[in-house]
Deep mutational scan, measured.
Amino acid sequence: MQYKLVINGKTLKGETTTKAVDAETAEKAFKQYANDNGVDGVWTYDDATKTFTVTE
C-alpha cells in the first residue's frame, strides 16, 4: 500500500510518499525521515486516506 506524509514543519514543509506493508511500517519510515530532516512535532494519521501529518 502507498502512504503519504504531510510535513508542516517550522523550516520544512511538503509531502512525501512511501510504499509499506502496513501503517506501522510506514509510520516508522516517516518518523525516521522527519528525524533525519530535523522535524519534531505532533503526529496524526488518517486511515481513510492513508495519510500521516506531522506539525511542529
Rank of each mutant, 00 (worst) to 15 (best):
E56G: 05
D36M: 10
T44E: 10
A26G: 02
Y33S: 02
K31N: 04
Q2E: 14
E56F: 06
G38Q: 07
D47S: 11
T55S: 08
T25Q: 13
L5I: 03
W43C: 01
T44C: 08
T55L: 05
T49G: 04
T49E: 06
D22Y: 03
F30E: 00
K50H: 13
G9F: 10
D47Q: 11
A26Y: 01
D46Y: 04
T51H: 03
I7Q: 02
F52Q: 00
T18R: 07
T49N: 09
G41F: 03
A48F: 11
F52M: 02
Y33E: 03
D46K: 03
I7M: 07
Y45E: 00
G41I: 01
V39E: 02
N8K: 11
T25W: 06
K50Q: 09
V42M: 11
T17V: 11
W43K: 00
D47Y: 07
L5T: 01
A26L: 01
K19G: 06
L12E: 05
K4Y: 15
L5P: 01
D40P: 04
D40L: 12
D46T: 05
T44F: 09
A26M: 01
M1A: 12
L5M: 06
N35D: 11
G14N: 09
K13V: 09
T44A: 09
N35G: 07
M1N: 14
T49V: 05
G38M: 07
T17D: 05
A29C: 11
K13W: 10
T53K: 05
T51S: 04
G14A: 14
Y3T: 01
L12D: 05
T53F: 10
E56D: 08
Q32A: 12
D40H: 13
M1L: 13
E15V: 13
K31I: 08
A34D: 00
A26D: 00
A26W: 01
K28Y: 07
N35H: 15
K19W: 15
K10Y: 08
W43P: 00
V54R: 00
A26H: 00
Y33G: 01
I7Y: 07
T49F: 04
D36C: 09
K28I: 11
N8E: 09
G38P: 01
G41S: 02
A48E: 12
Q2N: 12
E56R: 03
G9S: 11
T17F: 15
A34I: 07
V6S: 04
G9N: 05
T18W: 05
M1G: 12
M1H: 14
T17Q: 08
V21Q: 11
L12S: 09
D36E: 12
G38S: 07
E56A: 07
V42H: 10
V6I: 13
V21P: 15
D22F: 04
I7R: 01
T18Y: 12
D40V: 14
K4F: 15
T49Y: 05
D36V: 09
T44V: 10
N35M: 15
K4R: 12
D40E: 12
N37F: 14
T16F: 15
N37S: 09
Y45W: 03
A26N: 00
A29I: 15
N8Q: 11
A29M: 14
T53G: 03
A48M: 12
E15A: 09
Q2F: 14
D22H: 04
K13Q: 11
T17L: 09
K50E: 03
K4S: 07
V6W: 04
T53V: 07
V39P: 02
E24G: 10
A29H: 15
A20M: 04
N8H: 11
E27V: 06
L12N: 08
A29D: 07
K31V: 06
G41D: 01
T18N: 05
V42C: 09
T18A: 08
N37I: 15
D47C: 06
G9L: 15
T51Y: 03
E56T: 08
Q32W: 06
V54D: 00
T11I: 11
N35V: 13
T49P: 01
G14L: 14
Y45K: 01
K10P: 08
D47P: 13
N35Q: 14
Q2L: 15
A48Q: 10
W43M: 04
T51I: 06
T11R: 10
A23I: 10
Y33I: 07
K28D: 06
Q32I: 10
K13D: 05
T18D: 03
T25G: 09
G38E: 07
T11N: 11
A29T: 14
F30G: 00
K4H: 12
Q2W: 15
L5C: 08
Q32V: 09
K19M: 15
E56W: 10
K19V: 15
V39A: 04
E24Y: 12
V21D: 11
T51K: 04
G9R: 04
Y33L: 05
E27I: 12
E15F: 13
D47H: 10
E15C: 14
D22L: 04
D22C: 05
N8C: 12
Y33M: 05
K4P: 01
F52S: 00
D36Q: 11
K4E: 04
V6G: 02
A20K: 03
E56S: 06
N35T: 13
D46H: 06
K19N: 14
T11V: 11
N8D: 10
K13Y: 12
A26I: 02
E56I: 10
A48D: 11
N37P: 01
V39C: 05
N8L: 13
L12M: 13
K31M: 09
V42I: 11
F30C: 02
E27D: 04
V42P: 04
E56H: 06
A23F: 14
T44M: 08
K31C: 05
T16I: 15
K19T: 15
A48N: 11
N37V: 14
D36Y: 07
E24L: 12
A29Y: 15
T49M: 06
D22P: 01
F52N: 00
T55I: 08
W43N: 00
K10S: 10
K28W: 08
W43F: 04
V39G: 02
A48W: 07
D22G: 04
A48C: 08
T11P: 04
E56Q: 10
K10E: 07
K4N: 09
L5H: 01
T44G: 05
D47G: 08
D40K: 14
F52K: 00
T17Y: 15
V42T: 11
G41R: 01
V6C: 06
M1V: 13
G9D: 04
V42S: 09
E56Y: 09
M1P: 11
K13R: 12
K31Y: 05
D22K: 04
Y45L: 02
A34F: 03
G38C: 08
T16M: 15
G14V: 14
V54N: 01
Y45R: 02
K28C: 07
D47K: 07
E15H: 11
G41C: 02
T53E: 05
Q2P: 07
T49K: 06
K31H: 09
A34M: 07
T25S: 13
K19P: 06
K28P: 02
T49A: 07
T55C: 06
T25L: 07
V21T: 12
T16W: 15
E27P: 00
T18V: 14
V54I: 11
N8I: 15
T16H: 14
T44Q: 09
M1T: 15
V54K: 00
N8V: 14
L12F: 14
A23T: 09
K31L: 08
K28E: 08
T55H: 07
E24H: 12
E27N: 05
V42W: 09
K4G: 04
V54E: 00
L12P: 04
G41W: 07
M1D: 15
D47A: 13
K19S: 13
K28V: 10
E15P: 05
V21A: 12
T51D: 01
K13T: 10
D46S: 06
K19L: 15
E56P: 09
G41L: 03
N8S: 07
T25N: 09
D36S: 10
T55M: 07
G41N: 01
K19A: 10
Y3Q: 01
V6M: 07
D47W: 07
L12T: 09
D47N: 08
E27T: 04
F52L: 01
G41V: 02
